[in-house]
């Protein structure tokens, strides 16, 4: 029951039926690529070349997955995408953590400790959300060189943190602006300082927006290709770059099943994050718009 009283004429019912049919069709349409990927990744190669794209596998196999993980060639090396998968984690986890913490502190300072020019500063930080990645490739490469971080994981973490701060600051600023400032005033009178107020008063109520920030940053950084390909060396590449190399390495027959399995592996973490925390994501995005 969806708590709505509807007209119950034949016409109205038919109209609803048509509506649901259209929605279902759209859902299937969007799910199709994922289905094709999954089906293809568990088919042996001869089934792929013989059958149609949508046919279910006759003899399902996990060999393509194993190959994609540990043996497939990405350029000169043939070690699969497994190593790069962990590379991605090594880049994503610190980058997400640091950018979220900095964004939270920024949002807190910009809303609860306003200073002359804080609105201007926030406006300028917002600009960061709209800067195309390509624009900064060369200066960033130069900067990383000066810092001695070229082609290192730390360098990639730094790039992602800098780019992420614009978004995380925006999230936390808009969340904290709805938290009554009197709470901070009361804590000041009680004798708490800048970090104590943040830690004891604001952080405990920030769970929804932390989830938003983490999901957003995780998917952004995990799915990044451009920075990954520009600022990494062979052994520091993220999985997206490895996937690209794997698909583009042509030695003999094209192994679509391995390609699909590798693509699934590369996409899995973001899928998992969405499934586990998706409902908090929506809740966090709408937080503040409705009281309570």
């Amino acid at each position: 029951m969806d708590n709505v009283i509807r007209r119950r004429t034949l016409g109205a019912r038919l109209a609803r039926l048509a509506l649901y049919a259209a929605l279902l069709l759209a859902a299937l349409f969007y799910l199709l690529p994922l289905a094709v990927m999954l089906i293809t990744s568990v088919k042996p190669l001869d089934e792929i070349s013989a059958g149609s794209l949508l046919a279910l596998p006759q003899s399902p196999t996990l060999v393509p997955w194993a190959k994609a993980w540990g043996e497939a060639c990405t350029g000169m090396r043939c070690e699969g995408v497994g190593g790069y998968f962990w590379n991605s984690f090594a880049i994503v986890i610190p980058a997400v953590a640091i950018s979220t913490v900095v964004g939270a502190l920024n949002g807190y300072a910009l809303t609860k400790w306003r200073f002359r020019g804080s609105e201007l500063l926030f406006g300028l930080m917002l600009f960061g959300c709209f800067i195309p990645f390509q624009v900064v490739l060369l200066p960033m490469a130069q900067t990383l060189g000066w810092l001695g971080l070229s082609s290192s994981r730390a360098g990639l973490v730094l790039v992602h943190v800098i780019f992420g701060i614009a978004f995380t600051t925006l999230f936390f600023r808009n969340f904290y602006v709805a938290v009554p400032t009197e709470l901070v005033s009361a804590a000041k009178l009680d004798g708490a300082g800048f970090f104590r107020i943040f830690w004891r008063i604001l952080l405990p109520v920030s769970a929804p927006i932390i989830v938003v920030s983490v999901i957003w940053q995780f998917t952004q950084i995990w799915n990044d290709f451009l920075f990954g390909v520009a600022f990494s060396a062979h052994d520091t590449q993220p999985v997206t770059v490895a996937l690209n190399n794997l698909v583009n390495t042509s030695t003999g027959v094209r192994e679509y099943n391995v390609d699909m399995a590798a693509a699934m592996i590369a996409a899995l973490p973001t899928l998992v994050v969405y499934v586990l925390a998706g409902k908090y994501f929506v809740r966090g995005l709408t937080a503040g718009s409705v009281k309570g």
């Binding site: 009554p180 009197e182 709470l183 009361a186 804590a187 004891r200 008063i201 405990p204």
Partner: peptide, 9 residues
């Protein structure tokens, strides 16, 4: 305070 400003957590 007017809004009481009780620490919610």
């Amino acid at each position: 305070f007017q809004s009481y400003a009780l620490y919610p957590s």
